[in-house]
Design a protein around this nucleic acid. Structure first.
Lengths: 204, 204
DNA sequence: GCATTATTTGTGACGCGTACTAAAATACTA
DNA sequence: TAGTATTTTAGTACGCGTCACAAATAATGC
């Protein structure tokens, strides 16, 4: 039953090629005209296929949007790295990175929405998507920075994840709840950082 | 020119009545069938008016959804208060409240989406909406809890806001980025709390 | 009554995401 | 070449948020 007649399934490379073609076009639209401009119908038109064909390659729009994450995250990472260039002291490096991280998302609400707010929360069934190495690396960067400071601390992961989610939370709040008189972003980020640094009781 | 003939504008109370009627129905739908069930067309049908009439009372869907916040926040607040009932020590109270806060949003993704993720980030023009007293009170609760601990600290607001946005960030991350192996929510919340408590160097 | 003005309704439209189905194109095996 | 399994397409459909614009309705001053 294994090898019957008929057209064979698409080859792995064909699948990948088509997927990347769609993703690439989606990225082009997103970069040129922003989040709202990326629509399935338009994407299909520009790629040159029927709207429904895309659904043969992606599960839905969310599945496509995830492919734009890498681009945005790379952009963010680049900006942070640029600001870190001339800084050596571990504590200052972490602080600068954190501030830059928050600033990036606050200054680019559209990108923030794409990466952190465009998920369909209701769809909780198993996701086939796994974060690729590159995407993970952008988070790993903070892990490294934290590691530089908490050398004797065992639980670097908890600290890093708290820092990351905390920073994202600051960006989320500033982006979405504009009516609430939030404290200054820089101040909150600094406060958050003490949760990472303080257990070690660094000189204050 | 001030007092010409013609039908006078709706009275303040009429406006408020109509608005609350719509908001009330939206809440009923949301409670019964969740986020996705709340649609303008259906809402209009159940309220007994034409779909477009709603736009005479609200700027759009977002404007209506905000009226559901109060209900969700009250529910959350109630749950936290319930867990705080038998706890006296300030530090434990704050910790319990924080854990309950994060748990609530992680356990109710639909509510989280409603309150924190349904905002139109792109629409950055001035919003006429101001948080009402009741809504503010739910955040104020944390301010009080923090105040109980940081009695000698001057900047309670920065600490509180950092805590709140950090907790929201934890919930957001757990809700949206499921592929990333986040540290345990409880652990992250505890870590976050140290940023609030540690500057005072409470007995550990 | 009438004219004037404010509000509501109706209707149609646009583009959206996505589901369903049937037909067509494709690329292989026998 | 004929058969067959697999894509892909086309078309239709649903409900969505929102816009535009004309018609209807309601409430007032004269």
């Amino acid at each position: 039953m294994a090898k019957t007649a008929g057209r064979p399934p698409r080859s792995e490379s064909d699948i990948a090629e088509y997927r990347s073609k769609i993703a690439k076009q989606a990225l082009a639209i997103y970069r040129a005209e922003g989040f709202d401009a990326v629509s399935m119908r338009r994407l299909a038109k520009e790629v040159g296929c029927a709207p429904m064909t895309i659904y043969a390659h992606f599960e839905g729009k969310q599945d496509i949007l995830r492919y734009l994450w890498a681009d945005v995250l790379a952009d963010m990472s680049r900006e942070i790295q640029r600001k870190l260039e001339r800084i050596d002291a571990p504590a200052e490096r972490l602080q600068m990175a954190a501030q830059a991280f928050v600033s990036y998302w606050v200054d680019h609400p559209d990108h923030f929405r794409l990466v952190f707010m465009s998920n369909d929360v209701t769809r909780s069934d198993v996701s086939t998507f796994v974060m690729d190495e590159e995407t993970l690396a952008h988070f790993q960067m903070f892990s490294d920075l934290v590691q530089d400071i908490l050398q004797n601390e065992s639980n670097v992961k908890a600290s890093t994840d708290t820092l990351i989610s905390g920073m994202i939370g600051i960006a989320l709040c500033l982006n979405t709840i504009r009516d609430y008189p939030w404290a200054d972003a820089t101040m909150m980020t600094d406060r958050l950082l003490t949760s990472i640094i303080s257990p070690v009781d660094t000189a204050s």
